[in-house]
């Protein structure tokens, strides 16, 4: 969907800005808000682009830099921390060979920290895109990543 269609869908009103930016970002293959898109949005909504950048960068769910196909957000809040989120981070780092804020060279995963996913009952927790994974262990993390990679390969094969 084009930027103007997304704006039209929600209504060209600043109150809908977060929703509009969510949709624009979801529609981008690299899961981010591009500079030229923000310029376009600025023209359409008549909001200064600096203001749009300021708003987007305030919220942790938006990114202005390209990200991978799947976004892993590991919770680092105290409840997850005391149940070992650091070990999970280590496992993810080792498995993906990237640090926080980085994207794997194949463009498949971006690793991020998040403040809380609100699923503390099953801490430690991470989310990959819209899915939340709880009661994580090192082994479980690897299995989850394996599964996603496998699905990706299968999907690619089917396309051929």
């Amino acid at each position: 969907m084009t930027v103007s269609r997304i704006v039209e869908k929600h209504g060209n009103n600043r109150e809908n800005l977060l929703q509009i930016m969510h949709d624009i970002q979801d529609a981008a293959t690299d899961r981010c808000l591009h500079r030229d898109v923000l310029d376009e949005l600025s023209d359409i909504m008549n909001i200064p682009v600096a203001d749009l950048v300021g708003t987007a960068t305030f919220y942790s769910m938006f990114s202005l830099t390209p990200r991978g196909r799947h976004i892993i957000r590991l919770c680092e809040s105290p409840p997850c921390y005391i149940l070992g989120s650091d070990n999970i981070l280590e496992a993810l780092r080792e498995r993906l060979d990237i640090g926080i804020g980085e994207t794997t060279p194949d463009g498949l995963f971006t690793l991020e920290h998040t403040s809380c996913l609100g699923a503390c009952g099953v801490a430690p927790v991470m989310s990959i895109d819209d899915e939340v994974y709880g009661n994580l262990t090192t082994g479980k993390v690897n299995a989850i990543i394996d599964q996603i990679v496998e699905n990706q390969i299968a999907a690619a094969r089917n396309r051929k």
Binding site: A50, V53, G54
Partner: peptide, 24 residues
């Protein structure tokens, strides 16, 4: 923003990372 109404400058990011950014 308020006096000149051009809004070239706006704060970016948040917390300790906050900076005053210009445009995009």
């Amino acid at each position: 923003q308020d006096v000149q109404g051009v809004s070239t400058l706006a704060p970016r990011a948040r917390g300790f990372e906050t900076v005053v950014g210009a445009g995009v």
